[in-house]
């Protein structure tokens, strides 16, 4: 079986034109493969490029050079050269992303925020909503909040809505950026359980987990991003 995610010779450098053309190299010639059912934890100190790598896997950041390939249905899509609509298709069906912060859409209720990805992927409304209810319930979001827009929710509640949204569809690939950062112990355990279930159904997962307990519970291996600094080798 081919790896679900295959990163080869990926380099990323930011050029800040508004600051005198300053160059910020992040990583250089990075290789990474992630297979189905595997959870890789991006590791390293702050500034090592963990989030940059995770965003590159979602095509949110453009590689300076190198390739990011993902298995999408029967195809393999190279995200750097794919057309925008193809990337959108990959995101709709294959790659889920849980960011650190919920991007709140004015007026859209929490239940709808969570159900949306499944509906956009073609899951019937009733089923998508049922799944959303189950997830919000498991993540201990009080039912009285489900019909409200999450704008006024606490940070932890917003993050749990965000996690629920990320698990609303059984994505073959999941990217998790500190999904437990502002959660209490009980909710951290719920997220751990969700990640384990995703692995069990064969999802390939790449995540940033600062919490050692969570990391040990879910990660199959650590990936040191800092090892790919240009001056590292």
């Amino acid at each position: 079986m081919p790896p679900m995610i295959s990163v080869s010779a990926l380099s990323k450098e930011f050029v800040l034109h508004t600051q005198g053309g300053a160059r910020i190299p992040v990583f250089h010639q990075l290789d990474l493969e992630v297979t189905a059912g595997e959870c890789v934890c991006l590791h390293g100190p702050s500034g090592a490029g963990k989030s940059t790598l995770l965003r590159s896997l979602y095509a949110n950041y453009k590689p300076s050079s190198g390739h990011v390939r993902v298995v999408h249905g029967k195809d393999i899509v190279e995200l750097g050269s794919a057309e925008p609509w193809q990337v959108i298709e990959v995101r709709r069906r294959t790659v889920g992303y849980v960011s650190q912060f919920l991007r709140v859409i004015p007026r859209v209720p929490a239940l709808e925020v969570v159900a949306e990805p499944a509906r956009l992927a073609g899951v019937p409304d009733a089923e998508a909503e049922k799944r959303a209810r189950t997830l919000l319930g498991r993540l201990n979001i009080p039912e009285r909040l489900w019909d409200l827009a999450p704008a006024t929710f606490s940070g932890g509640e917003q993050q749990r809505v965000n996690v629920a949204r990320g698990f609303a569809l059984d994505y073959p690939i999941l990217l998790l950026d500190e999904p437990t950062a502002s959660l209490d112990a009980a909710n951290r355990q719920v997220v751990v359980a969700l990640i384990k279930e995703a692995k069990a159904r064969g999802a390939a997962i790449v995540g940033i987990f600062h919490d050692a307990e969570v990391r040990e519970a879910v990660a199959d291996r650590l990936f040191e991003v800092a090892a790919y600094r240009r001056d590292a080798a």
Binding site: F14, V15, L16, H17, T18, R55, A59, N60, Y61, K62, P84, V87, I88
Partner: peptide, 21 residues
């Protein structure tokens, strides 16, 4: 030009960087 979030989060052209910042 490109994907909306890509252009806004990782702008390459000096003018886009200025616009976003």
């Amino acid at each position: 030009e490109g994907l909306t979030d890509q252009v806004l989060d990782d702008p390459h052209h000096p003018y886009t960087q200025l616009l976003v910042s």
